[in-house]
Every structure is written in structure tokens, then in C-alpha cells.
């Protein structure tokens, strides 16, 4: 007599695939894509703000006011400034440099030689003990050089405000997106679980412990969260990579400074893991709460 042999036991009590998983997968993937992009923008905002601050706080400019014998006075001023403590670098932006800056507006060869142009000396300050504006001004006066020292304080304050606004704005956007991710993932998971109430009820009445039932859903929704998170993070990586390429192609002034460096990759790797954890946790809490409500 031939014996009927049952097929191998499936790993889970839940269906391998279900209609509800498709929309949930896409909702989570889209939310994670947005969250990843937002996190990378936030990081770019912080990096840019720090860079702007460092550039402004670590630099001063000196404009030589004497029009007579200007080139010689600039050379003398540069030599004097190089000898001052608290200054790491001195760079002369000479007449040729000033002309080059004006050329895009006035056209090449349209700048007359007798047009008075300011000669600027750029100073790179020692970040540990930077020279003060008054000390530089005093040294130049003592050297009989009439010059105006600009520590960019006005610009620096405005730039700091702009950087702070950018940071707060991007952090607030990220917080909102993360909150929305949690809420949407939770809501979608609950909706999907509601469709499998039959499994919960049958297992419950068969005497399964709550934790056993919760584990079935935890594994399922954790895996779903991981897959959707990977998809969202991969798309975000592609989008940011494309933005990075565009930035390097000359559109950089119009685009945020995206950097897909190690911390950037860290965000993309962490996002699916967190999504899986969130999916599993939401499923566990929802199942346990449903089971408690049943009685």
C-alpha cells in the first residue's frame, strides 16, 4: 500500500505571499526613499554649514587704500602680514585677479587699464590662535600702510543665521519624515494584519502562546520591512549619486552638496535595518494588542 506523504512543513503559519504585502512594500519603500534622501540632505546641510563657518571664521581680507604706488605697498603689506603671529596664509588678489572676476560681466578686453580696481589680500588665520582684526589693523598702521581690514563679521553673522536655518529646517523635515515613516509603517502593518485576523484567531484558539503568534508576524513584517527598506535606500543612493554627478558637472551651485561618503553609506545601510526592526516591532505590538482586545 502506498502511503500518502505530506509535503514539508512551511516555515511560517502565514501565507508566503499575500495581496496586502504589495501596497505595503511600496508604501514603506517610498517612505524610506524620502527619509534617506532627507537624512542625506540634513547631513549635507550640516557639512555645508560647518564648511561655510570655517571658511568665514578662519579668514579676513585686507584692502589697500593707497592708490599711489599700490603694487609696492601691497607687497610690503603682504610681507608684514606674513610675519604676524596668528596668520597661516597670505594671498594677494592682484589687478589681474580682479579683472578676471569682472570679465564675465564686462566682457574680455573691455576693462580699461586705468580703471581703479581694489587690490585685496586674503588672510588665512591660524584656527588655534587667530590674529585679531585690531592687531592686524595696528600692525599695518605701524608699517605706514593705509588699509581696511574686514573680518566678514557682517557676512559671518548672516551666514551663521542661514546655516542655522538650513540645519533646523532639514532636521525638522527629517523628524517629520521619520515620524511619518513610523506612523505610515504602523498603520499599513495594522491594516495588513487586520486582513490576517483569521490566522491570529485560529492560532489563539488552538492554544498558541501570544509570543508564538507574535513571532510569526514579527518575522514576516521584519523581512518585508527589510526588503522595502533596501529598495528605498537603493533608490535614494541612486538619486543622490545622480545629484552628485550633476553637481560635479557644473550644476553644483544649484544643488545641495551631496556626498555619498562613508557616513552617507552608513545612513543607507542603517535605514533598511531600522525599517526591519520597526516593522517587526509594530507587528509584535499590534498582534499582542489585538490578542488582548479579543478577550
Amino acid at each position: 500500500m502506498t502511503r500518502n506523504v505530506p509535503e514539508p512543513t512551511p516555515p511560517s503559519m502565514l501565507p508566503l505571499r499575500s495581496r496586502e504585502d504589495g501596497p505595503l512594500f511600496f508604501v514603506i519603500a517610498i517612505i524610506i526613499f524620502l527619509a534617506c534622501v532627507s537624512a542625506l540632505i540634513t547631513r549635507a546641510a550640516f557639512v555645508s554649514a560647518a564648511s561655510w563657518r570655517a571658511d568665514l571664521n578662519g579668514a579676513m581680507t585686507v584692502q589697500i587704500k593707497d592708490a599711489k604706488d599700490q603694487d609696492r605697498k601691497v607687497e610690503r603689506a603682504a610681507k608684514l602680514l606674513r610675519s604676524l603671529p596668528g596668520i597661516e596664509g597670505v594671498m594677494i588678489y592682484d589687478r589681474a585677479h580682479a579683472k578676471a572676476l569682472l570679465e564675465p560681466w564686462l566682457g574680455k578686453g573691455n576693462i580699461p587699464d586705468d580703471l581703479p580696481l581694489p587690490i585685496i589680500i586674503g588672510l588665512q588665520l591660524d584656527p588655534k590662535s587667530p590674529a585679531s582684526k585690531s592687531a592686524i589693523q595696528l600692525a599695518l598702521s605701524a608699517g605706514d600702510i593705509r588699509a581696511e581690514v574686514d573680518d566678514h563679521r557682517r557676512w559671518s553673522a548672516e551666514m551663521n543665521n542661514a546655516a542655522r536655518f538650513l540645519q533646523i529646517f532639514s532636521l525638522a523635515s527629517l523628524s517629520l519624515l521619520v515620524s511619518a515613516s513610523v506612523a505610515v509603517t504602523g498603520f499599513a502593518t495594522r491594516a495588513s494584519l487586520a486582513a490576517r485576523r483569521d490566522v491570529v484567531n485560529t492560532l489563539h484558539l488552538a492554544g498558541a502562546f501570544d509570543r508564538y503568534i507574535a513571532e510569526q508576524f514579527e518575522r514576516r513584517f521584519g523581512a518585508l520591512g527589510l526588503r522595502a527598506g533596501l529598495m528605498g535606500a537603493a533608490l535614494a543612493g541612486l538619486a543622490v549619486g545622480a545629484a552628485q554627478l550633476l553637481s560635479s558637472g557644473g550644476a553644483g551651485l544649484l544643488l545641495p552638496v551631496f556626498r555619498l561618503d562613508i557616513p552617507g553609506f552608513g545612513i543607507l545601510v542603517l535605514a533598511p535595518v531600522l525599517t526591519a526592526f520597526l516593522g517587526a516591532l509594530t507587528a509584535r505590538m499590534t498582534v499582542l494588542s489585538n490578542l488582548r482586545e479579543q478577550e
Binding site: 505530506p6 512543513t9 503559519m13 492560532l203 488552538a206 492554544g207 498558541a208 508564538y212
Partner: peptide, 11 residues
């Protein structure tokens, strides 16, 4: 088979 075995598996 799996439906019938469900109470045993759940235990």
C-alpha cells in the same frame, strides 16, 4: 495536513 497538525505545531 498542516491545518490538521496546527494545534500540535502551535504547541
Amino acid at each position: 495536513f498542516e491545518n490538521i497538525a496546527l494545534p500540535l505545531r502551535a504547541a
